[in-house]
Structures are given as C-alpha cells and as structure tokens.
Design a protein around this nucleic acid. Sequence first.
RNA 1: GGCGCCAUCGUCUAAUGGUUAGGACGCUACCCUUUCAAGGUGGAAAUACGGGUUCGAUCCCCGUUGGUGCUACCA
Length: 496
Amino acid sequence: MNSQVRTRFAPSPTGYLHVGGARTALYAYLFAKKHNGQFLLRIEDTDQKRFVEGAMENLMKSLKWLGINWDEGPDNGGPHGPYIQSQRNDKYTAAVNQLLENGYAYKCFCTQEELDEMRRKQEARHEAPMYNRKCCALTKEEVDAKVAAGMPFVIRQKIPEGMIVIEDLIRGKVRFDSKSIDDQVLVKSDGFPTYHLANVVDDHDMEITHVIRGEEWLPSTPKHIWLYQAFGWTPPQYAHLSLLLNADRSKLSKRQGDVAVEEYIQKGYTQEAIINFIAFLGWHPGKGIEKEIYSMRELIEDFSLDNVHKSGAIFNLEKLDWYNWQWRRRKFLEEVEANPLNRKAILLKECEEYIAPEYKTADKEALLDRALKTVEEKVIQDPKPVNDYIKFYFVAPQFKPDIVYSEKMKVEEATVKQVIPEVIATISELSEEQWTEENIKVALVGIVAKLGLKNGQVFWPVRAILTGEQFSPGVFEVIWALGKRETLSRLTNIHL
RNA sequence: GGCGCCAUCGUCUAAUGGUUAGGACGCUACCCUUUCAAGGUGGAAAUACGGGUUCGAUCCCCGUUGGUGCUACCA
C-alpha cells in the first residue's frame, strides 16, 4: 500500500457522457493530478438489462476529447484490471462468500410478489418500506434445502444496528441511523453484483483513496462503509458533489436541453470552454480571486475540494457561450501569433466546412480572399463561430423579415421599399475601377442624405438583406467583397 | 410518508462576526464606430423567513419555509 492519491470515475455505460458526469470526472481528475496521483476509469456495467452497444466507446471518446485522461482503464489496462465490472465477477463472488461465511450477509428467497406485497402493507401503515428480514431467520439446513431445490435467491447485506457518522470532505459529518437503512441486495438472482458490492470491492482492489462522486450516493454511503468494515478493509475518503440542475432547479435532465457532452462538441464549443465552464459550476479558486479564465493546467494547479460548493448549480448556457468565445479568441490569437504568415490558412481551417468545394478552385479564389479579409476582425471580436460569419458569402440568404425590419433601428417595410431601389441605382453606377470600400461608403452616405434618413435606416436593411444575419461584417466591406454583380442580384431578388 | 442534503443579485459565485455585501454572465444607459457586433464608462439587481447567542450577525445555534436527492434484484 502506498499513500498516493488515487481517484476514479465509474460511469455505467448507458449511452453517452452526461455533462454532470463530465464534471464529476473532471473534479476527480483535477484532485488526483493536483496531488500527483492517479485517475482511473472503470466501467460499471453490472446491470445487464441496461447494456447499450457502443456506449463505453462513446464515453471514452468524449472524455478524451475533454482532455480528461485516465492512467488506468479498460483500453490501456493497469495493475488492477480488468476495468470492466462484468469481467470481474469471480472477485465479487469470492468477496460475497466471505461475507456469507462471517454472517454479514444472507441468502433471500423472497419473490418479487412477496416483496411488493410487504411494501404495500408497510406503506399503508406509513412505515418506511424495508425488507422484513424474513429469510435472515432461516437455518442453514433450510437455506441449503431451498438452494438444492433450485429456488432462485439474492444475497442481502445484513445491516448492523446503531448510528453511523460519515466524514464527507465537502459536507463534513453526516449522521445516519441504521434503522432507516434497508438490507441491501448485494448479488442479484442473475448472479451479478449490485453497484454497492461491486463498487466497494473494486475501489478496495484498485486502491482508491478518495471517492469523488455525485450527491445521489450520499444516502447509501453507510452501506458501503459497513461493507468495508465487514471485509475488514479501511474505507476511502468520500466527497459527495452537488448535482447539476435544470433552470427550474430539478436534476439536470434530457427533457430540458442537451445533457450529452457530444452534443456540445457538435455545436462547436471548444474543449477548453466546456472544461472551464463545468469546473466553475460548483467550484471557485477562493481567496477572493476574480480570475475566471482557467486552462486545464491552471485548474490542476489551483483545484481544491475545500472550495467545492455544497449547493447545486444550474447549467446556464449563456455563460458557456461567453466562455466559448473567450477561448476561441484566445486560441485564434495564439495561433496567429505563433505563425503570423499563415493567417489565411488558419481562417480557412475555421471556415472549412462552410465553404463549398467549388470556391476552393482558382476562379473563386478572389471572392474567398475578399470574404476572408472581411471576416478576419470578427473572428477575434465576436462570440459566434466564424462559420456563421462567412457562409452567407457563398450561399445567398433567404429574406428574413424578423431581422430586416427592426424597431430599434427604425426600419419598417416602407423604409426598405424606399431605400433598396436607391441603393440598387447607386451601386449600378459604380464602375470596376471605382469598386472600393471607400466609394461604396460614399455612395450609401449619399443616399442617407438624399432621403433624409438616419445612417442605420439605410445600412441596417442593406446589410440584413445581403447577409441574412443579425451580426456580420460591416455593410461596406460586405458589398465590396460580394462584388457588384452578386450585390445587385441579392438586392433585386427580394420581394417586398 | 421516512431519511439525508442544500439555501448571497435572474444565473455562476466572493466575503465570513464589524465591507457602501465584491466579481462574472445576462439585462440596461451613455461613449466610440457615420449601421449591427466588438470595445470603453456607468446603472438596476441578492444575504428566504422567524427566533436566539453577541456590543454587533450574510456569517454561529435552533425552528419554519422552500428546493432537491435517496427510499429497486438501476446506477
């Protein structure tokens, strides 16, 4: 035994990596790395009914993408393998036999119907639904006879009497009375262990020193401690994390938005932003520190369980958006700084998926160059993905009344009907040699003066029609980049 | 119902016996830019309630209320 810190993330593979799970994994990872320890990944797949094809691979992919890497796990192995519970059944069988021999567990032959009936009666009497220990009273001969007769059974933990106090790293002392704790099923009738048994056996075997897990496990922690005692093992330290919440403060659920990390990946959020965001959902560097942008390296440096919050945090997307653009800008600037001559290539990489292949050919190169030029500043200024800033150059947008007509800018339908023909006429007069941003600006300002309108009443609708976007590069640069022909075509094709 | 956990701006949070209760997101006003965004300077916005302890409670204790988790042969 060594004193090295070892933590683990132990998800059950039911499909995807939940953002709440990602946060739990992150905290366990940060804690281990902060103390130069190890972080392990273990798959808890003892419930055969919930098996989902490919879920484990999916989970590992998301975790890796986030930069949460494990020192030991199903794919890279380690000294305490296998790291998949369904492959460790012999260990659980050996452990539970030891419990049976020493009287810490017993076989239970009660059927589902009997249990249901018992609970119904208990509830009718307003009692806590708990197993009545009927089978605990069976003699060894009775048990052997039932087993010999082929009766199915489960193995239950015999909960001892008395109070138990658990020392939680986040919550302090938490007391439980064993009277309120049920004789937990340890091994199901299909021979597989439940979470409680497998978890304790594995954490001990894998030499886990700190169990960092969700708050939903707090009520069953006494069962786990008693199991350690029954085995004669030293329990690990516990840290129960609060839950992530929906906007209405209920437990974060699929119903009210995206909960899978992969969905955020698909939406274009950066790895750094997601990590930074979930790290701050329930943790803070403390000491009055006001810095909020933290890289993984910095998080490891400053992480401490002492500064983890007890209350649940709402998963607030607006802040994620802000983190995302902070990180996008930071990464873009770093990349450009490292390689200033390659600015165009970096932009191109950012825009790649929105640029149709035909624009990468020589004859379209000019438009692409101009488009990239107008978009350049935006990349480091705006929270939106750069894609949204460039795709309109290559696909003519729909006319969007919601955007074109703006109360704030004092742009109404009548304004647009008045302005657009003027713009078409004026732009048409500009020759090839006159096609500069400056001249376009002069032309539009001329229209403002001529019609006696405010700048925004002319600039806003033109830009909105040309781009179809609420936010975009400036109207002069857009017209310039699009070119005379495309500009006129877009302005002419709208039907007011 | 029983048991457990939690409680500072709308949200994420800082401060902890003595502060004009601080920051960030969002919202908002103005400035900048002859448009939007971005940027700059301001603004509105919180200690759930009731009792204690104390010279003094956001902070410590008790209760109430509210929220939430568990109460499976799920994890």
